[in-house]
Computed example of a mutant assay.
Amino acid sequence: MPGKNIHFVPTNNGWAVEAERGDGVQHQFAMQEDAIAAGTERAKREKVELLIHGRDGQIRERNSFGNDPRDIKG
């Protein structure tokens, strides 16, 4: 069973990294760069996709680390 994708999302006090359909546990960060770095490391370790959301909640970037949903060779 594949792991749950990781989401980088804005919060009232900064930024959070959380698992998709998770148990509500978030890792909070004041700095955006720290949250992205932590989310990237977790996504690499779990071989899932990292979805980076902007302040408006929209996904602005996606990075796949072993669970690429696209069927593109090369």
Rank of each mutant, 00 (worst) to 15 (best):
M1Q: 13
P2A: 06
G3K: 11
G3N: 13
K4D: 03
N5L: 02
I6F: 01
I6M: 06
H7V: 05
H7P: 10
F8A: 12
F8N: 12
V9Q: 05
V9S: 08
N12L: 14
N12D: 14
N12T: 15
N13C: 04
G14C: 06
G14M: 09
G14Q: 05
W15M: 10
A16M: 05
V17Y: 00
A19G: 07
E20P: 05
R21I: 08
G22M: 03
G22T: 02
G22E: 01
V25E: 14
V25R: 09
Q26W: 00
Q28G: 07
A30I: 13
A30Y: 10
M31H: 11
M31Y: 10
M31W: 02
Q32Y: 14
E33S: 15
E33F: 03
A35Y: 00
A35T: 03
A35E: 04
A35F: 00
A35S: 03
I36L: 11
I36W: 08
A37Y: 01
A37V: 13
A38E: 14
A38T: 08
A38K: 01
G39Y: 00
G39M: 04
G39P: 04
R42Q: 11
A43T: 07
K44I: 02
E46D: 11
E46M: 11
E46W: 07
K47A: 10
K47M: 09
E49N: 13
L50A: 04
L51N: 01
L51G: 06
I52K: 07
H53R: 09
G54F: 04
G54A: 06
R55Q: 13
R55D: 08
R55P: 10
R55M: 04
D56L: 02
G57E: 01
G57S: 02
Q58N: 15
I59W: 06
I59H: 06
I59K: 06
R60W: 05
R60T: 12
E61H: 11
R62F: 03
S64L: 04
F65D: 02
F65V: 03
F65K: 02
G66A: 03
N67C: 03
D68L: 09
D68N: 12
P69F: 11
D71W: 15
I72A: 11
I72W: 13
I72R: 15
G74K: 06
